[in-house]
Amino acid sequence: MRDTAQLLLLDRDAIAALLTADLALHAVRDAFTLHSRREGRVFPVVREQLADGVFGIKSGDVAARRLLGFKAAGFWPANRLHGGEPHQATVMLFDPATGRPMCLMDGNAITTARTAAAAELGTLLLARADSTRLTVFGTGVQARAQVAAAMRALPALASVRYVSRDGKPDARFEAALADQRNMRGVGDASNVSNMGSVSDMCSIRHAPDADIAVADSDVVITATPGGGALFNIDAVRPGTHFTCVGADTRGKRELPEGLLERSRVVADDRAQALALGEMQWAADIECVELGDVLTGGAFTRAENDVTVFDMTGLALQDLVLGECLFAAALEAGVGNGVAWPW
């Protein structure tokens, strides 16, 4: 059927019609399980600095499921000047038997959703279940999704504080979190209101002093561009869990020097974390992978352990979630088919 072959295009709105936090969590759990059992492969990452941003390619396959593809993504900070999102991503799935493309999809919401879902899974596995206080560094799309994911994982959470880039309160960020209270949505994963629910008993407020906020938190999320240490190591209390999102490129970091050496460190992928994540700054420390925690119980938490989840993002997260969305689109008749004869 070479002459009648088609390529399915799923744009932002098509993805929004299909994507939910529950779907993302299911796909990400599946991806980490595949990674732990070495049933899915992660190919070497391309991650390069450009004149105006950062560009990368994450790719891989799951042979038993005939899943092959990549995500091309990066960060272009000047997009903010035009009212656009600085993170941009595109996912492509291929037929591994022929190499022909099957589905091209907007990857922005996919990236947000799968990153938040990975953090949710990490929080469920690594943080204290009775955690009530959270601090998030950052006020962007990913920070909003990360807070929603933490709320899903920690139903007892009663306080969310945020540290902004300019040190000032962010009314839009506060409104975005407030709007999601008691809401469970589907659709656009770039909108935090669709990434879970926030208890109406949870307070949301700006934290003018990062060290004070960290010292008074059970869970800390760092979701910034990774320009340097965000707080002092002396602020860290025993038992705190850190979800680290921003260090995803050589030279980036968010944690202070010495914190990893004091912590129980879990990575999505050890090799990637050593090359791109927080672990690039402490290459000799011990580390386990989240998939092994999930499938083999490779982690037992003591009450006073400081835990760090070093997230650099697995290609399998994007591909397995993309596979789910592709199947859902075909079933629902969503997207645009384009003739792609060969």
Results as ranks from 00 to 15, higher is better:
Phe242Cys: 01
Gly138Met: 07
Arg12Asn: 05
Asp305His: 03
Trp281Asn: 12
Leu34Ala: 10
Ser36Thr: 05
Ala210Trp: 06
Ala275Cys: 10
Arg41Gln: 11
Ile221Val: 15
Ala156Gly: 02
Arg262Asn: 07
Thr224Tyr: 04
Asp200Tyr: 06
Arg29His: 13
Leu81Ala: 15
Leu274Met: 14
Val245Asn: 10
Val160Tyr: 03
Val54Pro: 00
Gly56Lys: 05
Leu154Cys: 08
Leu104Ala: 13
Asp216His: 08
Leu319Tyr: 01
Asp22Ala: 15
His26Glu: 14
Gly69Cys: 04
Leu330Pro: 01
Val42Tyr: 00
Ala339Pro: 06
Pro169Asn: 04
Val186Gln: 12
Val91Cys: 05
Leu316Ser: 09
Cys244Val: 14
Ile204Tyr: 09
Leu259Ala: 09
Asp310Pro: 00
Lys252Leu: 09
Ala24Lys: 07
Ala327Asn: 11
Leu321Val: 05
Phe94Ile: 07
Ala158Val: 02
Gln180Ser: 14
Val214His: 00
Val62Met: 02
Phe242Asp: 05
Ala5Asp: 13
Gly313Phe: 03
Arg253Asp: 07
Thr111Cys: 06
His26Ala: 15
Ala283His: 13
Arg12Asp: 09
Asp22Cys: 04
Met201Asp: 14
Ala31Ile: 10
Val338Trp: 13
Met183Arg: 15
Phe75Leu: 15
Arg38Ala: 12
Ala116Gly: 14
Glu120Ser: 11
Arg161Met: 09
Gly83Lys: 11
Pro169Lys: 04
Cys103Glu: 07
Val45Thr: 11
Gln272Phe: 04
Ala16Arg: 01
Ala64Leu: 06
Leu316Met: 10
Glu174Asp: 13
Asn194Ser: 03
Val198Asp: 00
Arg114Val: 05
Cys244Met: 09
Asp216Gly: 02
Glu261Gln: 15
Arg161Glu: 14
Ala158Trp: 01
Ser199Leu: 08
Ala267Gly: 10
Gln88Ile: 14
Gly83Cys: 10
Met151Arg: 09
Thr20Gly: 04
Met201Cys: 10
Met195Cys: 12
Gly337Lys: 13
Ala14Cys: 08
Ala5Met: 13
Glu261Cys: 10
Pro155Lys: 10
Ile233Met: 11
Ala329Thr: 09
Ala171Arg: 14
Leu121Glu: 03
Gly83Pro: 13
Leu177Gln: 09
Asp106Trp: 06
Ser203Pro: 01
Asp170Gly: 07
Ile233Asn: 12
Leu314Arg: 08
Asp30Pro: 00
Asp22Phe: 03
Val306His: 00
Leu330Asp: 08
